[in-house]
């Protein structure tokens, strides 16, 4: 039985929604037979060895890398459509690594690092964002959350993280 964390939600409507979503869902049992048919035809031998120990590993890996590069290219171009350049700056003299996390990068601390500008303690990054409203904040040395002082703040979240809001028009 999975844990129930819905007590964290302060909103009754959300708690009701979660209760609804936690109802059992029945998929078509035909999935079982279809999977077994596929195994018998495409992978008839028992899966004894890790795939990367096979002689085809290098070829598979290279093909995978090429596929990822191929798939990413049009996505990147797509992201540029209608996007506008936005420069974010932060003065963090004590920091050795500064990243920005927000709605535009799904709050992923690995996605958008800032780089030193050459001015002492000043970091910057240029983003390309589509028109919209974005919540974001900076993370200094993976432990200190710092909101952007040049943009309006938003009220403190439940997690106590200071954030700013950026509007791209």
């Amino acid at each position: 039985m999975p844990a129930d964390h819905s007590h964290e939600l302060q909103d009754e409507t959300l708690r009701r929604a979660v209760a609804e979503l936690r109802r059992p869902v029945a998929l078509d049992p035909e999935i079982d037979a279809a999977t077994l048919r596929r195994i018998r035809t495409q992978a008839p031998r028992p899966p004894g060895q890790p795939w990367w120990r096979s002689g085809r590993a290098a070829v598979t890996l290279a093909a995978g890398v090429l596929l990822v590069l191929f798939l990413r290219a049009p996505a990147s171009e797509h992201m540029m459509n209608g996007a506008r350049p936005v420069e974010l700056r932060l003065v963090a003299p004590a920091g050795s690594r500064v990243v920005v996390v927000g709605d535009f990068n799904d709050w992923d601390p690995a996605a958008t690092p800032l780089r030193p500008t050459g001015e002492p303690g000043v970091w910057k990054v240029e983003l390309r964002l589509k028109p919209g409203r974005y919540h974001y904040t900076f993370l200094v040395d993976q432990r200190q959350w710092v909101r952007d002082p040049s943009e309006p703040p938003v009220p403190l979240t439940d997690f106590g993280t200071p954030m700013s809001v950026l509007t791209v028009s």
């Binding site: 964390h5 819905s6 939600l9 979660v18 709605d103 799904d106 709050w107």
Partner: peptide
Amino acid sequence: YVEGLEYDEMAKVTGANQPALRMRVKRAS
């Protein structure tokens, strides 16, 4: 909330770190 995972389990499943996951959960809610 539906699968009931702890944040460390979510990090293993998704590859994202816990602060990012907490923020995503908060924004989603």
